[in-house]
């Protein structure tokens, strides 16, 4: 190493900068792949009801929402992708394209696109077909599903999205495609074809 750097100060400095930048850049990927396999307490479903609004009656309390721990985590997104088929979400939402149920790769969210909103949609069920999964799917897995569902329309960080999905991806911003245009400008089917 020493011999390489002896030649010129510029070369040496630039090599040092390159090494520092590479190691710093690799540090950012650590969090991306963290595998939270065992939540504590192990068998508890966290926090019961999830707050979807900061408004509240009675005495003012801490208004922070239950946050999705898995939002920026690639492992959780891929686990969510597996569960999406295991629990037959694909039976109605067809890999995100929609069928019997509404599509998930567009920017239309009847009951909200926030992590907490998707969580409550899954847990409580919704009119006209969405069943309630309360007591059927543990909270940890629901949050993983939330992370995956949001990744379908490009709502979580691009670094968490699977690069090897077999699912639909003809929208910019959906799985594995770089975000070229925001989902707002993306193609939308005419109203008559909306589910």
């Amino acid at each position: 190493m020493r011999r390489v750097f002896r030649g010129s100060g510029v070369l040496r400095a630039s090599a040092l900068i390159a090494i520092t930048c590479t190691s710093l850049a690799s540090l950012t990927s650590c969090k991306r792949e963290t595998r939270r396999l065992r939540e504590s307490p192990p068998s508890a479903t966290p926090g019961g009801a999830v707050r979807v609004s900061s408004l509240q009656p009675g005495v003012a309390q801490d208004t922070t929402h239950a946050r999705n721990l898995y939002e920026g985590n690639a492992y959780a997104v891929s686990e969510g992708q597996r569960l999406f088929n295991w629990y037959n979400c694909s039976g109605c939402h067809a890999n995100g394209g929609g069928g019997m149920g509404p599509p998930l790769i567009d920017d239309e969210w009847i009951y909200g696109a926030g992590p907490e909103q998707i969580y409550t949609t899954i847990v409580q069920g919704r009119p006209n077909g969405m069943p309630s999964f309360a007591g059927k799917v543990p909270a940890q897995q629901v949050w993983q599903l939330v992370a995956y569902v949001r990744s379908l329309s490009g709502l979580n960080p691009a670094s968490t999205r699977s690069a090897r999905t077999e699912h639909m991806m003809y929208y910019p911003g959906s799985q594995a495609l770089p975000m070229e245009t925001s989902p707002k400008q993306a193609f939308r089917p005419p109203a008559s074809e909306m589910p």
Partner: peptide
């Protein structure tokens, strides 16, 4: 997850 970390069996609250 204590016995087999990463297994696809989720914890069960009973």
């Amino acid at each position: 997850q204590q016995v087999k970390p990463g297994t696809h069996m989720p914890p069960n609250q009973l």
